[in-house]
Design a protein around this nucleic acid. Structure first.
Lengths: 118, 118
DNA sequence: GCAGTACACAACCACACAGTAGTGTAGTTG
DNA sequence: CAACTACACTACTGTGTGGTTGTGTACTGC
């Protein structure tokens, strides 16, 4: 498998929608937090509520979105629902984003340095 | 440079916001289309309007969002504003997303195959 | 100067969605 | 069965924003 599959040009409309939809799922701090916690390992809804300091209803709702998007998996065990990361690529996405943020910060830093050095 | 920088746990709140904000910029089909077109090379607003079949005002607005996020750069030349991709990582992000989509499709395919084979 | 072109900004509307409150539903315990 | 726990679903509200319309601004050519 090629590490980077070249995408067609122009991207067909439905694919564009799918891509945007997927980004939209990740465009929410609460959901990033949930994924961040799940990085440590599986967790029940209660544990995720504790980790995010949010309401149970809210956590449950966002978990549903992540589940529908296929980013997480769900396993029922008695009264408890255990959630886990189902698509490790989300972490690569976050790292790539953070890389972009770092690059921007570096550029800003360079500009400031140039501005103050003279 | 390490290919993958391990992120801290848990992610600090401001970083979570920044990550989500960055995903939010990409969570819009129109902006994906604009970036897709810019992949071919620089383009004026007029060219981008033609490529997206949208209004000039709308394209201009979305370009502003992409510019503020640092995904694209702007160069004025007479009456024309030339936009270009400033952060190539967006394409890796899109490819990663597409990879996730493909994986999901494959899983669905497997389920369907199993369901119809018996 | 005047007209025309290329782009950006502001105001508006309509829709989507995050968060909350309340309720429903399994499963467990006594 | 009754009470409790853990979680999901529904309805509602406020906020944010995508798209459109209208206008402003800067540059070009006559």
């Amino acid at each position: 498998m090629t590490a980077v599959t070249t995408l067609s040009h122009p991207l067909p409309e439905p694919l564009v929608e799918l891509i945007a939809e997927r980004f939209r799922v990740l465009a929410e701090p609460m959901r990033i937090k949930l994924l961040d916690r799940l990085r440590e390992g599986d967790a029940t809804v209660g544990e995720l509520v504790a980790a995010t300091s949010s309401s149970q209803q809210n956590v449950s709702k966002h978990l549903r979105v992540l589940l529908d998007a296929g980013f997480v998996g769900r396993r029922q065990e008695g009264n408890f629902a255990h959630y886990s990361v189902a698509d490790e690529s989300v972490f690569r996405l976050c790292e790539e984003v953070c890389g972009g943020l770092r690059r921007q910060l570096a550029e800003l830093d360079a500009v400031i340095a140039e501005g103050t050095a003279r």
